[in-house]
Every structure is written in structure tokens, then in C-alpha cells.
Simulated scan of single mutants.
Amino acid sequence: MSDPLVIGVDGGGTSTEAWLADAGGTVLGRGTAGPSNAKAVGDDRARRALSEAIDSARADAGIGDRPVAVACLGLAGFDRPDDRARLASWCEQGGWAGRLVPANDGDLVLAAGTPEGFGIALIAGTGSIAVGKAPGGRSARAGGWGPLIGDEGSAYSVALAGLRLVARRFDGRSDRPAEDSLTGGLCEALGVPSPGEIVSVLYGPAWDRARIAGLARIVVACADGDIEVRDHIFGPAAEELADLVVAVRESTGWDDAPNPPPLAVAGGFLLAAEGLRVEVLKLLGDWIGPVGLVEEPVAGAVMLARRALG
């Protein structure tokens, strides 16, 4: 009998990555696809992305379409009971694995970014969420409510705030500084000559949530030279992300522990926006312990799948 194989998947609002590994953790195949956050792109598109990433990983490993022993699927915005039931159905129909380990994207970051899998994970990519797990087994989450009622401090939230500020300045509802790099940068990224043309582009089919979130880097880059961006977008975004961590720390009972919890930080936006990340950590101060940056949460999915083998 051949050694058991596992698949780990990290799926979010921007992309999906799958790794196929052996029981010892050696990665044998990799696959990537588009976004698989069903709350953002819908069930059909999410399922297609998962299938594409997993099939690519299986092909890369040379195992054809045979199922592996365990698959850990860590998907943003897809961790409630009805979501997990749907995921189990997809796994069975797709022949992905004999056993499914559903996980929140924060679980992957905890597994990959903390020494023993205990602590707090803060993720800010297209969306935002914090999850935590204490050594005694107590767990909690904050955020992850999606773009309509949550995702504070995320790339999408920051990008929208920047676009709203540009609109206010164009209308005369906010003072426009002499050097308005925010307006210039966002108009250039959208391919329009002036803010008056933004609506015709932004509401078109090409600009989905993930692409709009990509504009956040321009907003963050303007924080140093634009007081309004710094005080009304950058600063509040850092505070919102810090609040997520504090809420999880209190809910998991870390306040009663002798040492503060380790913090694992992930998400393309927060990892790339160093200034924002530094500000979040400054706000947290002694509330958290060692900080680890997790660039590949999919490694945590592989780790959780391997633990399930035991």
C-alpha cells in the first residue's frame, strides 16, 4: 500500500492555492486558481476554483485524479455549519479525499505561524478576520463578516474609503490638497483622466471586489503625505485591526494567562503594507507576544491535514 497523501488548500477572495504532500510533509505538487470565497464570488465559481487548484496539484504530483487520504480546506468566509456541509458534498462529488478537514483561513495561519498552534491569527487581505485558540482549547473569532457589514481594515475597505474621499474632494465636500497624490494615483489605476469618469469604469464588470481591493496599496502609500488619508483612513484601519486582536484575546481568556499570546499575521494586504502593520503592532503593544509573518497559509492547511492522519 502506498503512503497516505494529503492536500492542503488556502482559498480566499483573491486566489486559491493547493499543495499536495506526503505524510512527512514533503510537498509533491502545487496548484493555483482564482478566488474561492463563496460569499464573494458565489458557490459555482468557488467550487470551480477549488477543483482547478486541487486538480492542478494532483496533476503536478503525478497521481491523476485519485483521492488523497485527507484534505484540509481552509476557506475565507466559509466556515459555518451549512457551509461545511456544502464543502463536504463538493469533496465527495469531486473525489478529492477520503476525509475532509474544514477550516477557517485563520486556522491555517495559526497552524503555520505560531509555535504550537495556539495564539491569535490576524488576517487582512481582501477581507479581514482574527481567530484565536488558547492551550485549554477555548477558541474565538472576531470579524469575518464580509464587505457589507464588516471587513474593517481590509484592502477592500481601505480602497473604498480612498475612492470615497476622492469623490468628496471632486464634489467640493472635502478640501483638496495642492498635491493630491490620492486622486492622481487612483485615477491612473482606473485608467480615467479625472474623478468624474470613475463611475463609468468602477461599476463595470471588470472591476470586481478583488480588483478594487488592489487599489488599497495606493491609498496606504498616500498616508505619509496626506493628513486626511492618515487621520481618516490609515489610522482608523489600524485601530480596527487591533480591535479584532484584542476582542479575540479577551474571548479566549488569554488575559488570565501569564504570558501574552503569540500573534500570526497574514493576508497579502497586511503583509505588503508594512506601515499599516507596524501601526497595528504599535497599538497592540504588550497585548501580544512574539509576532510571526505567514506568507503561505497553505502550509498550515497541509499541517492540519497531516495531524488528522494521526
Score class of each variant (00 low, 15 high):
Asp286Glu: 14
Val302Leu: 10
Trp287Asn: 14
Leu304Ala: 02
Pro135Trp: 02
Lys133Ser: 15
Ser139Asn: 00
Trp145Ile: 04
Leu293Gly: 08
Ala189Gln: 03
Ala273Asn: 01
Ala247Ser: 08
Leu163Cys: 07
Met303Ser: 12
Gly34Glu: 00
Arg217Ser: 07
Ala23Ile: 03
Ala272His: 09
Cys222Arg: 08
Pro35Phe: 08
Gly11Pro: 00
Ala121Trp: 07
Leu270Tyr: 00
Arg168Trp: 01
Gly289Ile: 15
Ala103His: 06
Ile7Gln: 08
Gly113Ala: 10
Ala178Gln: 13
Asp10Lys: 13
Gly150Trp: 05
Ala305Asp: 01
Thr14Asp: 11
Val245Asp: 03
Asp105Gln: 10
Trp254Ala: 15
Val201Asn: 05
Pro297Gln: 15
Gly300Arg: 14
Gly267Val: 02
Pro115Phe: 10
Arg169Phe: 05
Leu186Asn: 02
Glu179Asn: 11
Gly162Leu: 07
Arg141Ala: 08
Tyr203Phe: 11
Ala301Glu: 06
Ala242Val: 11
Phe269Met: 07
Tyr203Lys: 08
Phe170Ile: 01
Val246Asp: 11
Val245Gly: 04
Ala178Pro: 01
Leu75Cys: 11
Gly31Ala: 14
Ser89Tyr: 07
Val298Gln: 07
Leu271Arg: 10
Gly117Cys: 12
Lys133Trp: 05
Phe78Thr: 10
Phe234Asp: 11
Ala97Asp: 01
Val248Lys: 14
Arg58Met: 05
Arg66Gln: 15
Ser36Glu: 14
Arg48His: 04
Gly144Pro: 04
Val280Leu: 15
Val101Asn: 03
Asp65Gln: 15
Asp10Gly: 06
Arg141Leu: 08
Leu215Val: 04
Leu5Asp: 10
Val278Tyr: 04
Asp231Gly: 02
Leu148Asp: 02
Ala53Arg: 07
Leu293Ile: 14
Asp226Leu: 09
Ala155Trp: 00
Pro102Ile: 06
Ser174Tyr: 04
Ser56Asp: 12
Gly106Pro: 00
Trp145Gln: 12
Asp105Ile: 06
Cys187Thr: 02
Val219Cys: 07
Gly144Ala: 15
Leu190Asp: 01
Trp90Glu: 08
Gly98Asn: 09
Pro147Lys: 09
Leu148Trp: 01
Val199Tyr: 00
Leu100Asp: 02
Leu263Thr: 06
Arg306Leu: 11
Gly310Gln: 02
Arg230Glu: 07
Ile120Asn: 10
Val229Ile: 09
Ala189His: 01
Ala155Ser: 06
Asn104Tyr: 02
Ser181Pro: 00
Pro195Cys: 06
Ala237Asp: 05
Arg211Cys: 05
Asp65Tyr: 05
Asp255Gly: 10
Ala134Pro: 01
Gly185Ile: 03
Gly204Val: 12
Asp105Asn: 12
Val70Ala: 05
Ala111Arg: 07
Ala242Ile: 09
Arg217Val: 02
Ala21Asn: 08
